[in-house]
Design a protein around this nucleic acid. Structure first.
Lengths: 244, 244
DNA sequence: GTGCAGAAATTGGTTGGACCATTGAACCAC
DNA sequence: GTGGTTCAATGGTCCAACCAATTTCTGCAC
């Protein structure tokens, strides 16, 4: 039983070839996020493949979040595309229950702290100004709407992730944020959820603006700790039967 | 494989509904990895949708690595499927170059530090013993094979992730490890890659065994820092043309 | 000319049917 | 048994429509 290094032969890989060609086209035309790419019918015609094959290929890209399809309108790029990209589709056996949410929160604590620290190191003037802008918007919404600032809150954190210089942070957290949304449709009954975390947004910003990585990491850890407390409090308030 | 209880599909969002129905079917039949699921033609017939729609849905699952399609044979499950899964499509632009590896390393630093801290809090006697066992194996391999202990090194870290009490850590890191497997083997031509990180494995274990979260976190950060240094050193040794 | 409602064109989503390429099992000769 | 052959099952591709949402154009009223 000797060792071979014979990869399986590849006879048919239409849709893969379609994606490669499309990636090349996007590069050549220098298309960026938001821009529209050719219609399925045109692609099928140009590439000399069936429209079905084009659709399967685009379905793949859609699943990777690279592209967005709008019926009646067209297909649009959602992210930068280059021929040499590595994809790691990751599906986690999570759950809508309390422990599942707690686990995603632990991941978020890990990433949030690191992202804040990296941000404090790398963020330039423009990035810091953008974060401050999101912070102002959030604080304004918080005061005028009595604490209902979930959307603005999320945008603030996104700005931090983006300024970390590592797109993986935003991608991972974005997936988890979606899970949170699922859970928040059935709110925990904690009326002032998120109130406790509010002041730490500004302290995080201040540590970032001061280019203090360790300080930013510490403040981020505090913020997540308050969210965890809120969550535990909410779970305690509920009957266990509601949590399933 | 005879009786099904697959109700027909409603309207709009067909392929999504198909996936939901399929996920329910997989649960109901208690299908596990490796098992074969109904043919596309049968699914199309039972769900009262076109075969193309079934194909698009399956293409989605295939893209997520949940399913494998073998022409002439059938479609087989590759992972456990449950209706509430967390999908996390990660894309790394410019894949196999230095910055890509660096970015995954930043994620690893975030998760490794948090996992070590959680581990120090939650690990029981059995988990700590298991980690020590992996550590001993690693150190033995390191000394007898002059530093080539990549596999044993990886198993040590896995044991830590597992003892953190949160399976998400292991799943996320495992995906990245698989993605950069080739780099872990011969990373950038640095001969003694990983040597510098070796002593920190034991210090991490000691902090965990002492139930010292902050200490464990600090040691984990040091370990990753040495790996980062090795990586930077390797990149500096290489000509830029090789990095491309 | 402006504004707006309705028609027409555009575009992704779905359907049904056909054929091809690969697989695997049953079968057969040796 | 071994090695081929046949043949049905299954995923892969193609085609030609039609449906549904969106956008664009058109023409009428003002």
């Amino acid at each position: 039983m000797t060792e071979f290094s014979l990869p399986p032969i590849q006879t048919t890989a239409r849709d893969d070839a379609v994606l490669k060609a499309l990636a090349g086209f996007v590069m050549q035309e220098a298309l960026g996020p938001g821009e529209k790419l050719p219609t399925e019918r045109i692609l099928a015609d140009r590439l000399k493949v069936s429209r079905n094959t084009v659709r399967e290929a685009l379905t793949r890209w859609e699943g990777l979040g690279l592209v967005e399809r709008r019926q009646g309108s067209g297909t649009y790029l959602k992210a930068a595309v280059s021929p040499d990209m590595l994809h790691m589709p990751l599906t986690l056996a999570g759950g809508n229950d309390f422990t599942g949410l707690m686990r995603t929160l632990e991941i978020r604590r890990a990433l949030e702290a690191e992202a804040a620290a990296l941000c404090a190191i790398r963020a330039g003037k423009a990035e810091i100004a953008e974060i401050e802008r999101k912070l102002d918007i959030m604080e304004e919404a918080f005061h005028s709407r009595a604490g209902m600032s979930a959307e603005e809150d999320w945008e603030f954190h996104q700005a931090v992730y983006r300024a970390s210089g590592n797109p993986l942070f935003e991608q991972i957290i974005a997936a988890m944020h979606e899970l949170f949304h699922r859970f928040w449709e059935h709110p925990l009954g904690v009326r002032d959820f998120g109130h406790a975390s509010f002041p730490y947004h500004r302290t995080i910003y201040e540590r970032i603006a001061a280019h203090d990585p360790d300080g930013a990491r510490a403040e981020a850890l505090k913020l997540i700790a308050t969210v965890e407390d809120d969550l535990k409090r909410g779970a305690a308030n509920l009957k266990l039967s509601d949590l399933k």
